[in-house]
Design a binder for these strands. Sequence first.
DNA 1: GCAAAAGTGTTACCGCTACACCCATGC
DNA 2: GCATGGGTGTAGCGGTAACACTTTTGC
Lengths: 248, 248
Amino acid sequence: MSPYDPSAFPPFAVTVDLVVLTVRRHALCALVVRRGEQPFQGRWALPGGFVRADEDLSAAAARELAEETGLCAHDPASPGVDNGAHLEQLATYGDPRRDPRMRVVSVAHLVLAPDLPAPRAGGDANSARWAPVDELLEGPGQTVEGLAFDHARILTDGVERARSKIEYSSLATAFCPPEFTVGELRRVYEAVWGVALDPRNFHRKVTGTPGFLVPAGGTTTRQGGRPAQLFRAGGATLLNPPMLRPEV
Amino acid sequence: MSPYDPSAFPPFAVTVDLVVLTVRRHALCALVVRRGEQPFQGRWALPGGFVRADEDLSAAAARELAEETGLCAHDPASPGVDNGAHLEQLATYGDPRRDPRMRVVSVAHLVLAPDLPAPRAGGDANSARWAPVDELLEGPGQTVEGLAFDHARILTDGVERARSKIEYSSLATAFCPPEFTVGELRRVYEAVWGVALDPRNFHRKVTGTPGFLVPAGGTTTRQGGRPAQLFRAGGATLLNPPMLRPEV
DNA sequence: GCAAAAGTGTTACCGCTACACCCATGC
DNA sequence: GCATGGGTGTAGCGGTAACACTTTTGC
């Protein structure tokens, strides 16, 4: 039997795109970079890049993340370093016309990170910033230009994934620093869902769910008012029963 | 500006693999085909194939599905024909060593279908069959040989997706014929989750959820006993509150 | 009649919501 | 003192679990 004939299949470029979300100033924000070349030159886009010939998809995503933010992601699929951020595969986008230059299939990944210092511009992107997702996704006829390629769609899917996953998992803690208060965690939920939650019931719910939070020992008054207990994320990953997202 | 330089990125083969699930004889079953060539010649594998040069990913999945089963999938992303089956993207698998011949990135899709006549063998697969997923996924040291490539992992992910999605969506109806009884729908849940449900409470729950089921008019005694009302799937896609999966 | 499956009624319990209320700090 | 956020108590309500019980068919 002869070796495989590469002419039997069409060649594709494969990239990873990153939806990197954080909570800043009570708003859900995404990392975007300004494109330095055609097409969509000068427009904002999600960070990303080509997958290397011998590189796994999640490794490519983690590499791009480190290049763009210096962040070390914790990938559940390939455990090792864990600097706080959560990384998971989101979905794959392969419309034949999504990139005018050639056939590109992009495997989008979702990253949830605590609030970071200003992003450092990396590689071929000549600038990078955190932008509120509401601003990036304003409807058609908006004041700002939309994101490049199909990145508005990818960002929408990533935000929806984050919104639903914090309902039934402990992922909201990925938006928090290593030690945080119940109030800070509540403000994460409020920013991601865009709703107000009852502080009293929220407190009972999260402290009463076994394994969600473990006391870190100290207290802080960095939010003002009475000193609040500091917590760390507990071992539990699934919340049962889930956090209930109020009706819209 | 010169056109894009294709030497700047490594070429990949892109395939779609299908996790086609159905419920037969009270068991969750998946469609598998016997491989006719190396590698893994003679072993069972998930159906799939190369994405064509100008073809969208979901179109490739629908085409492979039609070739293997004659089924016309309803793809929410590209509405049109709707022969009952549900199709959605599952996840993408791109480990550099997942195919010994070359670098292949596979975009797996999940299909939920009603019980079908015996599958017709299609294309290069010299036979196809429905196999209970419990049998396909028996642990290491099992009596049967495992699936080819990383298909056991893909199947596991697809089954887990199906199990969780029927909790909070009306997708379980995709396993049923166009008209079905409450008892038949309950047996779908029981087969997918591998648990027994209380028929009385199940009946109240599904008939009491607005938009989940609409009466089709007739009755049937095909399950024996007292005649049961026939229903069709209603317009609702999300179940709120969800069906509760009993603790294991 | 008997078995089998479809439906309805009822009660106890659990978790959530919506509050009232108290606590500990900075100013 | 006063504002601010942290934390506890409690009553009402909606949904589920775990039954008992009736209905309508095939054999």
